[in-house]
């Protein structure tokens, strides 16, 4: 509240005080003082009075038509209002649904307590878990197979490089099919020795002599005479 006010008769109150008066921000005492000061100036008094009358006229409400029915009719088109009787029935129906839900819940709870085995489902693995586990098993089996094949191939190479090719041949032939497939390029002609009889069994080709390799031990048939059986002392 603005307590400052001019002394009556000293001077006309400034516009700020007049505005504060109309804004209702003056204390009762300041208000009385401003009004007293204004009375000493006819023009200021007339201005103040005229403003007050205009504002008082503004407060008088104009006659307004009753738009209630129009508004309700219009609103009803956009959102249906429910009559009182129907509204009460809706309330009862809602209460009934709530009571029914409570009864069902209590019944289920009582049933579980009385017959727990009848109301408890057995644990089951979820399909997703099964798929996950199967995938892991398959992956582990695949890795094991690849590891085994690689091991077989390594052993074959080792045999080829360190031992008699025929021994390697035997080892290779003893290897599982997938290992033989991996080493097929070496099996057919491991040392680059040409053999006209390309359709001869690997064991026969394996028996091809190596030049300067000393006595050859034939394994299987004699490549020069397939009718003859291989013999340790049979040199070409």
């Amino acid at each position: 509240m603005n307590e400052s006010a001019p002394n009556p008769g000293d001077r006309i109150p400034p516009d700020e005080l007049i505005d504060a008066l109309f804004d209702g921000e003056l204390s009762p005492r300041a208000r009385r003082e401003v009004l007293g000061a204004v009375r000493h100036d006819a023009r200021a008094g007339a201005d103040l009075e005229r403003t007050a009358r205009v504002l008082a006229a503004l407060r008088a409400p104009p006659e307004a038509p009753d738009l209630t029915d129009r508004i309700l009719h219009s609103a009803d088109h956009r959102r249906r209002f429910v009559p009182g009787r129907l509204r009460r029935m809706t309330k009862l129906a809602r209460a009934g649904v709530v009571v029914l839900a409570l009864v069902v819940m209590l019944g289920v709870a009582a049933g579980r307590r009385a017959w727990p085995e009848a109301t408890t489902l057995a644990d089951e693995q979820t399909p997703l878990a099964d798929v996950n586990e199967a995938f892991r098993d398959d992956a582990a089996a695949g890795v094991g197979a690849i590891r085994s094949s690689v091991h077989q191939v390594r052993m074959s190479f080792q045999a080829i490089s360190t031992a008699d090719p025929c021994v390697a041949r035997l080892e290779i032939e003893a290897a599982p099919p997938h290992a033989r497939m991996l080493t097929a390029g070496f099996v057919t002609n491991p040392f680059g020795i040409e053999d006209e009889r390309a359709d001869a069994p690997a064991s026969i080709r394996c028996g091809a002599p190596r030049i300067g390799a000393g006595p050859t031990i034939w394994v299987g048939s004699n490549p020069l005479d397939p009718a003859r059986p291989a013999a340790p002392d049979d040199t070409p």
Partner: peptide, 16 residues
């Protein structure tokens, strides 16, 4: 909740 009488009361109170 759809009470038309309540809506009418609100309108009558504020429309002026």
């Amino acid at each position: 909740r759809g009470d038309q009488e309540a809506a009418a009361s609100i309108i009558r109170h504020h429309q002026q």
